[in-house]
């Protein structure tokens, strides 16, 4: 007899909570954004601690967390931002597999570090796959719960937990591997496809000052404010592909850092691309925070991509999916 899938009820939605996995791959040519977790590294760590497949979906929780009721006992791990999670008054350790009792509540408090937390659950959040992914993309109404952010009285089903879930309770990411999210990180960038659209000193200007994350920043991209990045002539190009990490500069000379929900194509010149290994640092920023840039070569960026993944595989090997 099939058992009832465990449920999580939303008592309070929080500021902006969405279902995210590693994103929607293969449909950008039809105008569909990749979306997925803003901080894929934090999502991967949670899934791997629990023995989930890498692609399992989780809740991405932004700045002010939701209040959730666990109808049945579930094994969870909270990764990414530390938003002071508690259950029935007790603090929940970050980056650690924890058993939630049936009837227990999960709440969040003040922002201690970072901006986006991930609630990963043994078995993963389930729901209707849309174009191969559960990731919520609000602007196109795809994924998650009818393509929207979580609201009060929503409920989530959870997939069958991996057989190893009970043994994983207490499993934790070693302190030394935990990221230190700051409010003014330096991220590395590689040259963008239109670096020649900018004056010779543009890269120097980009890398020698810091940029503020403005309030016009969301999962799609961060509008930054800082030293102006002058174009040689036009800021516009005939539309072509853009990707997460692209640093595009419209005619107002202020850069926009594209993030997970960015559209597949765009028409502004791209000065640089933030490397994947530093995406977490940017993903954990909120409006008012700032970031600085350091330029490296495309070759170095490729090597860092590999070493970053190799390190994660060494600390927490992927489980068979």
């Amino acid at each position: 007899m099939p058992t009832k899938p465990p449920l999580i009820h939303v008592l309070h939605p929080g500021l902006f909570t969405t279902v995210q996995d590693l994103g929607r791959c293969g449909y950008q040519r039809f105008g569909v954004s990749v979306s997925g977790a803003m901080d894929p590294w934090a999502l991967l760590v949670g899934n791997r601690l629990l023995g989930n497949p890498d692609r399992a979906a989780a809740l991405e929780i932004t700045l002010h967390g939701p209040e959730l009721l666990f109808e049945q006992a579930l094994t969870i791990a909270l990764t990414g931002a530390d938003l002071s999670p508690t259950t029935n008054g007790f603090a929940i350790p970050m980056w650690t597999v924890v058993a939630m009792q049936a009837g227990s509540r999960l709440q969040f408090g003040t922002r201690r570090q970072g901006a986006r937390a991930y609630l990963t659950v043994a078995g993963g959040i389930t729901g209707p796959m849309m174009l191969g992914s559960l990731s919520t993309h609000v602007r196109s109404g795809l994924g998650g719960l009818a393509g929207r952010a979580v609201k009060k009285w929503d409920q989530f089903c959870v997939g069958p937990a991996p057989r190893t879930a009970a043994q994983s309770i207490g499993r934790s990411l070693l302190e030394r591997y935990r990221p230190r999210y700051t409010k003014s990180p330096t991220v590395r960038v590689m040259p963008g496809p239109q670096s020649d659209y900018f004056t010779d000193d543009a890269v120097q200007l980009l890398t020698s000052s810091s940029y503020r994350v403005t309030t016009e920043s969301d999962r799609m991209g961060y509008r930054l404010e800082g030293a102006e990045l002058p174009h040689r002539a036009s800021a516009e190009i005939v539309s072509e592909a853009v990707c997460v990490g692209s640093l595009q500069v419209p005619s107002n000379r202020q850069p926009i850092l594209l993030m997970a929900d960015c559209q597949p194509t765009g028409g502004y010149a791209k000065l640089a691309t933030m490397i994947s290994a530093d995406r977490s640092l940017a993903a954990q920023l909120a409006p008012g925070d700032s970031l600085s840039f350091r330029m490296i070569s495309a070759q170095q960026a490729s090597e860092l991509f590999r070493s970053h993944h190799a390190e994660l595989d060494r600390i927490l090997p992927p489980c068979c999916s």
Binding site: M190, C243, T273, A301
Partner: peptide, 14 residues
């Protein structure tokens, strides 16, 4: 032209 570590753009015109 590399767009990122995981993407390359092949241009056919402007």
């Amino acid at each position: 032209i590399p767009l990122s570590e995981f993407a390359v753009t092949v241009e056919f015109g402007a």
